[in-house]
Simulated scan of single mutants.
Amino acid sequence: MNQPTDDSLTAPTEIRVAVVIERHARPSAWEEWRFSLAEVLIDEGQWGNQPRCLRDDGQRASFLYPGFPVRLHRDEGEGYYLNLSSGAPVWFVMWRIDDENASQAAPETVTLSYNEAGRLLDAQERVDNLPLPETVRAWLQAWTDANYRPEPKKRRRPASFVDPSRRGPRDDAPECA
């Protein structure tokens, strides 16, 4: 991965990643298969461009899916800011179980935007997350610092300066019985 620069015009806005998904056979009496997100790795071309099985012992298997672009978009700045300010920034990976072969699952998209992950969850998609490595966190922080400014908080006027007809109920007012 290229190191970020302070100049947002020359800073990279995309990295490529590979996703590792683990499959567990018969994890319970009610499940045939269980899938979990195992790793998100920086992909500099070392894994080619085809998915492959890393290991399969009959009970547990790991599958590598290379070549996912993670792009930073100006209109997702708030989502990156929210991810970074959460205290534990993460990768968000949306994945699906294959409709024709329930023993297979594959990632569909990888994002760093908290808002985009929320939209995917609202659409009933499966989204899991894993912690960001420090190098990616620093890259995302530099990009966010250069390209996003949170909305300033609006000052709330004291109720004494608001027209009485527009005031809400007082919290300290006695209740009528």
Rank of each mutant, 00 (worst) to 15 (best):
E175F: 06
L64M: 15
M1C: 06
S36F: 01
E76A: 14
N115E: 15
K154V: 10
A38F: 11
P12Q: 11
S85H: 11
S103C: 05
P158W: 11
V70A: 12
I97E: 14
D145L: 12
N129H: 08
D172W: 09
N49L: 04
R137K: 14
W91I: 03
R167Y: 12
E125Q: 15
D57W: 07
A11P: 02
P169Q: 10
E134A: 15
A88V: 11
R34H: 14
G118M: 04
A18E: 07
V90L: 04
M94R: 15
P4K: 02
R166E: 15
S28K: 03
S85V: 09
C53P: 01
L9G: 00
N83E: 07
D6N: 13
N115V: 11
W143S: 07
G77P: 07
G118T: 08
A117F: 05
A142D: 05
G67Q: 05
N129F: 05
F35R: 09
K153A: 14
W30S: 13
D163F: 00
A11D: 10
P164M: 07
T109K: 07
D43E: 02
D172Y: 09
V93P: 09
D99G: 02
P12I: 13
L132H: 00
Q50H: 09
Q50G: 02
G79H: 05
A18W: 03
E76Q: 15
P66E: 03
G118V: 04
T111D: 09
N129T: 10
R55V: 08
E14S: 12
D57S: 08
V127F: 02
D56E: 08
A38V: 02
L84K: 03
D163T: 01
P174F: 10
A11H: 06
V162F: 03
L84Q: 09
V40C: 02
P4M: 04
A123W: 05
N129D: 05
A173L: 05
E22C: 04
D7N: 15
Q104I: 10
I42W: 03
P158Q: 12
P150S: 10
E31N: 14
K154D: 14
Y148M: 08
G58S: 12
L41M: 10
P107Q: 06
E22W: 00
W33M: 11
T13D: 14
A102E: 13
L41E: 03
A88P: 00
A61W: 03
G118K: 05
V17G: 06
P133Q: 13
E44T: 10
W95H: 12
P107G: 11
N129E: 04
E39H: 12
L9V: 05
E32G: 03
W47V: 06
D128P: 06
E44C: 05
G118C: 04
L9S: 14
D99T: 08
P66V: 00
N2S: 10
A102V: 11
R23H: 04
E44N: 10
P158C: 06
D171I: 00
D7V: 02
S160L: 04
